[in-house]
Every structure is written in C-alpha cells, then in structure tokens.
C-alpha cells in the first residue's frame, strides 16, 4: 500500500491518498486538457485499494473549478468508492463548496444523484 501525493498546479488539484489511513483529499482547480491522464494514478490505486479497503474511507473533495473533462474522471473516482461501499465498507464523502458557489453545490448534488453514496455538503467561507 502506498501514499499518493500530487502537488497542485494552476490547472490541477492537490491529490493526497493515504491508503493505509483510508483518506483521500482532492483540493483546488481541476482544468487539465488531458484529465484522463492526470487522474489515472489515483484511479489505479483506488482499484488496488478496493481489494482491502479501510472502513471508513474518508474522502474530502474541495474544488474551486473543474472542467467537463475532469467531471468524468471525478465520477470515475466516485464510482470506485461506490463499489467499495457496496462491499459493505463505510465511505464518507465530504463535498466542500464556497458560500455563494451554487454551481459547485449543484455539481455535488448531481454526483450524489448518480452514485449511491451519501454526501456531506460542507459550505466553506470564501478564502
């Protein structure tokens, strides 16, 4: 088991995944041209993680912006978490959005409607 740490860039978010602790954090902007390539390491290690996951797995997603190319990849990540949940493991999703950012709140609700996972919608103050 490993720890993934990807530092943020102007186009990509910080990603921290500690499979031992069952903690995943995605934070920042996600607007890369090649989103599939960017999310590949995370998707692959979630695939591995699914064979012996922690319970609970805690996921914190705090995105400022994301492009539609990333939206598919984020769904991919959430679907992997959903299958971990389906195996009987607890998965906690915290979806953070800045106050006033209705689009980001709505994006969280959209995901919640697609995957069978409960989201904790967390409003944060504008930095």
């Amino acid at each position: 088991m490993e720890i993934i740490t990807i530092e943020s860039t102007p186009k990509t978010p910080t990603i921290k995944f500690d499979s031992k602790k069952g903690r995943l954090e995605i934070k920042g902007r996600s607007i890369p041209e090649n989103s599939v390539e960017f999310y590949k390491p995370l998707v692959e290690s979630l695939e591995q993680y699914a064979s012996s996951p922690n319970s609970p797995t805690q996921v914190d997603i705090q995105l400022e912006y994301f492009n539609t190319a990333s939206s598919k990849c984020i769904l991919d990540v959430l679907k992997r978490l959903e299958s971990i949940h389906r195996q009987g493991n607890q998965v906690i999703i915290n979806w953070y959005y800045e106050e006033d950012d209705e689009d980001m709140r709505e994006a969280g609700e959209d995901y919640q409607a697609i995957v069978n996972l409960a989201f904790n919608m967390q409003q944060v103050e504008i930095e």
Binding site: E33, N34, S35, V36, N67, T68, A69, S71, K72, L75, D110, I114
Partner: peptide
Amino acid sequence: ILNNGQMSDKGGGGLG
C-alpha cells in the same frame, strides 16, 4: 451524458 456518455480520451465527450 455524464453518467452514460462515452468519454473520449480528449475530453468530456460533448459535455462542454
């Protein structure tokens, strides 16, 4: 489209 649409390797497959 997000849930069912085919993702191209370039982008969101028409979501933009």
